[in-house]
Every structure is written in structure tokens, then in C-alpha cells.
Design a protein around this nucleic acid. Structure first.
Lengths: 188, 188
DNA sequence: CCTTTTGGCTAATATCATTAGCCTTAAGTT
DNA sequence: AACTTAAGGCTAATGATATTAGCCAAAAGG
């Protein structure tokens, strides 16, 4: 494993514990037992480059996880599995999730490229459901909106009662997918 | 209008244009034509206090807007109107929206208090629909997850094609509310 | 044995946020 | 009118952090 990758791994551990916004050159260096300037030997772009690398790692992990989750499932079950997989990733890697959802550079080319990979897994499930191109996009956005929104809100403690979060999520996924499939009844 | 309020107004204008994360003592002072230390005459707590004040303003505005949106409407229509109102707020005040959704202090007492006000408007509509207590909570969380998630993703440019965002949102709201009402058919 | 790459270090600079302490002006008070 | 106080601003100083420049040791490879 390259030193660069070692550093990214440590950063991921850190942000999952302390939050993405608390990541700094100073704390990374401390955690690694080196002095701040040494980090620039690996990331000339400084903190920005490190954060970017974390996002790339994040997108790739999510891509893999979502793709795997739908293997062997079809239609609603596949969609549902993907929703659960995404939320599960958010729980496993809250910091990484925060990074890729809300700290996207508004104009990053790289992110666009990588996002396409993730989207493609979702698209292929949607293909099997006979949606039109336009509807596929609406479905995709709706699911992303719900799952990413719900996950981020729960990770931030924005829902009062922590107890029944799993049921709330299950309820929401069911409702959304029910509504989506219902709109499709008289089509394909 | 007190000087304090004037400053908050300017900050809101700034974050709606530049994003919440770019708000700094330096830029606020520049924008006001004063020197950075002068700001501490109005906000002894520094940047943190200013950001907190912005969130309070934000919660109050949203509360009002959502409550108004549902006046004279009932059942699905009321729910739908609230979803649209929340997204509309996000478009009108992207920076404020960002602040209150994703930069909540995890443990702020104040926020909890204020959030309750907002939630109460939503709850009263849900009451009219005959949901059980538990289901009301699930519905509320699902709607918040979807609307806040969708809005934040679109504001960040995370959905490729900007053109059809309105339709995608309408599609998602319909699907979700359809699913919610369907689960309710054989109840009350 | 020489050379290059890797990974680290110290010292110096720039940018902010924040604190301390001073000053002016306008509003009240006696 | 003279005094006092509060508002709102300023300069100078401190402290944290990111970043740059330039030096150094040790390992890898010829």
C-alpha cells in the first residue's frame, strides 16, 4: 500500500469519527505522527486535494456497494435493496457520506465522471422496469433525494426520537416505491 | 432596525449568493465597510454567534412560509403544498437553507426548540388525515427526507440535467404522497 | 559507489479570528 | 450647560492554521 493511500485511509477513519468539517492538515499530521508540511510531499494540492481524494474513494465504494446489493434481485426488490445499501453506507461511513453528498464542488469535472458510474448501476435496474427515459430520471432523483436526505438528517440528529429510525426509513422507502410502481401500472 | 439585525440581513444576502461555508468575519466586515474587530461589538460570540443567528432567522422564516402554504388546503393538498413551500424556500434562500439543514450543531438546544415550531404546522395537517402517532412521525420524516434531500442535491448541482428539475420534484412528491395515502386507505 | 526518489524536518510567510484597549459621537441625566 | 454612558468603530497585538522554501537522511536502483 502506497503512503498516499495509507494517509487517505487514516483520514477516512478520522472523518467518520469527527466529521468531515473537522478534518485539517494539523489534525491529520498529528494523527500520523508527522509535521504538517510533510503532508505536502504526498498531496501538493494540500487539504483540497486530500478532500478530493476522499470523495473519489467514497464514490467508488458506494458504486461497488450499490451494485452488489442488487445482484440477483429484480424490479422493486432491486430498487429497495439499493436504497438500503446506500443508507447502510451512510451509517458505516458517515464522514465519507457527508463529504460526497454535501461537499461536492459545484463544478467538479471529476465528480461528474464518477457519479456517472454510480448512476449506471441504478439505471440498469430501472431499465428492467420498463420506465421511459424521462421517468427513469425522475425515479432516480426521487430515490436519491429521499435516501440521501433521510440519511443525512438522521446522521445529524435532526430527527428527534432516535428509536424508530429504521421503521421510518422502511416506511418511506415502501411509500416511495409503492407510489413509483403505481404510476407505472398501466404502462409496460 | 437594530444594527445587529442589519448585519444579519447582510449576511443572509451574502450566504445566499456565496454559500454558507464562505461566510467569514473578514468578508462580512468588508461587505459592511467596517473592520473585522468591530463586529465583536454586536456579536461577542464571534462567527459562531452570527451563524447561530442566521439559523434562528431561517427556522422562523420556514415556519411562517410552511404554515401559510397550507392555509385553506386539506389532506393531500395541504401536504403537497408544504413540500412545495419548503423547496421554494430553498430556492429563495439557498444559503440559509444549507445552514439550517446541514450545519445544525448536533446538540443545539435552541435548534431543538425552534424546530418544534416548524414541525407543529406539519403535524396539524397530518392530524386531519387520521394517521396514528407512529405513522405521523414516519410520514413527517419521509417528507422531510425527500424534500430536503432533493432540494440540497439540486442546489449543489448534483443532478446532471438542470432542465427538468421541476418535473422530477413533482414526480417525487406525487409518488411519495400517493404511497403514503395508499398505506392509509383501509385505516380511518 | 553514485544517483534518484521518498518522506520527513525546520524556518518563514500569509490569512483569519479574536482580544485588549482607545476614541468619538449621540442620547440621556442632573 | 456639564456630566455620564452606551453604541459603534478603530489600531495594535496574539494565536491558530495552511502553505512555501529549502535542507536532510535513508532506501532503491543503476
Amino acid at each position: 500500500m502506497t503512503r498516499k493511500q495509507e494517509i487517505i485511509d487514516v483520514c477516512i477513519e478520522m472523518i467518520d469519527k469527527e466529521g468531515f468539517l473537522n478534518l485539517s492538515i494539523k489534525t491529520i499530521a498529528e494523527r500520523l505522527g508527522i509535521k504538517p508540511p510533510s503532508l505536502y510531499k504526498h498531496f501538493q494540492g494540500g487539504l483540497d486535494e486530500i478532500k478530493e481524494a476522499i470523495k473519489v474513494y467514497g464514490w467508488n465504494s458506494i458504486d461497488i456497494k450499490i451494485a452488489k446489493s442488487a445482484v440477483g434481485k429484480s424490479r422493486e426488490d432491486g430498487l429497495k435493496a439499493m436504497c438500503y445499501a446506500l443508507r447502510e453506507f451512510a451509517h458505516e461511513h458517515p464522514g465519507v457520506f457527508e463529504a460526497i453528498c454535501w461537499h461536492n464542488s459545484y463544478t467538479s469535472e471529476l465528480n461528474h465522471e464518477i457519479t456517472k458510474g454510480v448512476i449506471s448501476s441504478l439505471y440498469s435496474i430501472l431499465d428492467s422496469l420498463g420506465f421511459s427515459e424521462a421517468v427513469k430520471m425522475h425515479v432516480l432523483r426521487s430515490l436519491r433525494g429521499f435516501v440521501e436526505g433521510f440519511s443525512m438528517l438522521e446522521l445529524h440528529g435532526s430527527f428527534g426520537d432516535e428509536i424508530t429510525l429504521d421503521e421510518s426509513f422502511a416506511y418511506g422507502v415502501d411509500a416511495l416505491i409503492t407510489g413509483i410502481m403505481k404510476g407505472q401500472e398501466n404502462v409496460g
